[in-house]
C-alpha cells in the first residue's frame, strides 16, 4: 500500500467524517417534544376498530358470520369506537377529525407545491406527512392542541382486555364495557 493511496484514502475519509459528524455540531434539539404516544395510540386503535367493523360487515355479507353474531360483534365494536372517539375528544378536541384535517392540509400542500405558504393549513402540512394520522408527528401536534386546553394527562399504556378501551391506572372496572380488569 503506497503513501499515495493512503493520502487519497484520507482525502476521501475527511469529508465523509465531516458529513456524518456535522449534525452533532448544530444546536441541540429533541427528536419529539413529549414522550406521550397516547393520542397516537388512540388514533391507531380507532383506525383498527373501524377496519374491524368494516371487516365483520364484509364477513357478514359474504356469509361467514350469522346475523346474531354480527349484530353482537358490531354493537361491541361500535361501543369501542364510540368510547375511543370520546377519549380522543377528551385528550385533544378536534383531533378526532384530524384525519380530515390532515387530508385537507396535504391537499393544500400539494396545490402550493414548493411555493412559500402562510396559512394555517399549509403550516400543518409542512410538519405533517403521514396520512393515516397515526404518526408521531400527528401525535405531537394533537398533543400540543390538547396541551393548549390545559388537559393534564397521565400516561396510561394499558387497555381493557375485553373491549380495548383505554384504562386509567387504579381502575378496577372498565369504563367502557364494565368488565372487571385483570390485576396488572
Amino acid at each position: 500500500m503506497t503513501w499515495l493511496s493512503l493520502a487519497i484514502g484520507l482525502i476521501i475519509a475527511l469529508p465523509v467524517i465531516a458529513y456524518v459528524a456535522r449534525p452533532l455540531f448544530t444546536p441541540a434539539r429533541l427528536l419529539y417534544a413529549t414522550d406521550d404516544s397516547r393520542l397516537g395510540d388512540l388514533l391507531a386503535r380507532k383506525d383498527t376498530v373501524l377496519s374491524n367493523i368494516k371487516e365483520i360487515e364484509f364477513d357478514h355479507q359474504t356469509g361467514k358470520l350469522n346475523t346474531e353474531d354480527y349484530a353482537q360483534y358490531n354493537q361491541r365494536l361500535r361501543g369501542q369506537a364510540l368510547s375511543l372517539l370520546k377519549r380522543i375528544d377528551q385528550i385533544a378536541p378536534g383531533a378526532g377529525d384530524l384525519d380530515t384535517q390532515l387530508e385537507a392540509a396535504i391537499a393544500a400542500r400539494r396545490k402550493v407545491a414548493a411555493a412559500p405558504v402562510s396559512d394555517a393549513a399549509a403550516a400543518t402540512a409542512a410538519s405533517v406527512t403521514e396520512i393515516a394520522g397515526t404518526d408521531d408527528a400527528t401525535t405531537k401536534q394533537a398533543t400540543e392542541a390538547g396541551g393548549a386546553k390545559e388537559v393534564v394527562m397521565q400516561r396510561s399504556a394499558s387497555f381493557c382486555h375485553h373491549c380495548g378501551a383505554p384504562v386509567e391506572p387504579g381502575d378496577r372496572f372498565c369504563r367502557a364495557c364494565g368488565t372487571r380488569l385483570r390485576e396488572e
Partner: peptide, 13 residues
C-alpha cells in the same frame, strides 16, 4: 374520499 378543505385548520401549533 377527501372532505372539502376547511378554510383554516383549527390546530394550534
Amino acid at each position: 374520499k377527501t372532505v372539502p378543505a376547511p378554510a383554516g385548520v383549527p390546530v394550534r401549533a
